[in-house]
Nucleic acid binder design. Structure first.
Lengths: 184, 184
DNA sequence: AAGTTTCTGAACACTCTGTTCGATAAAATG
DNA sequence: CATTTTATCGAACAGAGTGTTCAGAAACTT
């Protein structure tokens, strides 16, 4: 890839990241990003079709970092049988989020939250989808799935929204205590 | 109130409700609402400052209907001691939502979902806030609260998103089975 | 019927978007 | 190093949407 392209692209990413610390995504205009990034208007549009597409790609990249090493190498684990494995994975995710906290925190302000939620759900479904249904509670599988994943994502958002002050271990501990059908 | 004002106001509400069945809130323009409602441009702006304020007020009114008879008359109940009372209240809420399904379903498309979530959380906190913390699980109160309320709202959204096909009783039954600290 | 309030709709100033294009600068290639 | 390819710049433009203003018409009130 051309050095100039890389330079432009990171300039845009940095600009948006910076702006997100001050404004909600919807409030930010393309012109602001352009000015902040110090690039030409047409340059922006030669990289991204719209502001939303920029956000989309930023989230995609971020999540691919956050989850890159959590899914693949631990395929052999069976989270339904080994609760400690599940605990470890969830903590792992939270630590990754902690690494990206500046970005994630900003994205969670406003509409852009949806993109976050979408990618997060997608990932969790592929990570847990099959095994969650083995949990020992007498409710339909589909319900179980939405409950476990939904409450986890909500918990993570809550944790981020409160400033990531508590330790991941503590959050996961509380979360797992609240989950149904542990060892009965 | 002047009949003309009422007429205009309902025309605007109906117009937006109708449009929401076809488009997401963000896609709808003020002009579309005006055309659909058959009113003058300046008339719209003499009733609402912006499109967002219109949505805000619509949600507010809807929720005041949905929750009007659930909170006040049952103040004496202690949901922490009587799980059947809690179940009844939650089912009640779901039935109310069923009444407003056309509106609520539309609002849940897109950004406007946030307004829904905000009012819903607000209500549930005031309805359950104090009593949830009495649930018998060994996690911090604040966590308990966010978990119970968050997972409930997520469940309701999931239910709505899937087309409100299942009976409220069934949803609440599953939900309560998934809640921690029932009768241990 | 007279007075008050609301509605109308055209006109206006603004802001933001996304495109186009010729000129300029930087990188890649051989 | 010279040549070719590719990226950036930025001004200019058309288009869509927003929110305001105002004078006249229409509908309500007493």
């Amino acid at each position: 890839m051309d050095r100039r392209q890389i330079k432009t692209r990171t300039a845009i990413y940095d600009a948006l990241t910076g702006l997100l610390r001050k404004y909600r995504f919807e409030e930010i205009t393309v012109q602001q990003i352009i000015d902040e990034a110090n690039i030409g208007r047409s340059t922006f549009y030669s990289h991204f079709e719209t502001k939303d597409q920029l956000l989309e790609q930023m989230c995609k990249e971020m999540f691919s970092h956050v989850f890159s090493d959590t899914l693949a190498p631990e395929k052999s684990h069976d989270y339904s049988k080994n609760h400690e494995d599940m605990r470890a994975l969830l903590e792992h995710i939270l630590y990754h989020i902690l690494d990206h906290k500046e970005n994630i925190r900003s994205i969670l302000n406003g509409e852009s939250e949806k993109v976050f939620t979408r990618y997060f759900t997608e990932y969790l479904e592929s990570a847990f989808g099959e095994v969650i249904v083995h949990m020992d509670v007498d409710v339909p599988d589909a319900f179980k799935k939405q409950f476990v994943i939904g409450s986890f994502i909500h918990t993570v958002k809550w944790w981020i929204g409160k400033g990531l002050k508590e330790k991941p271990e503590k959050i996961i501990d509380s979360y797992m205590k609240c989950l149904p059908g542990k060892n009965e």
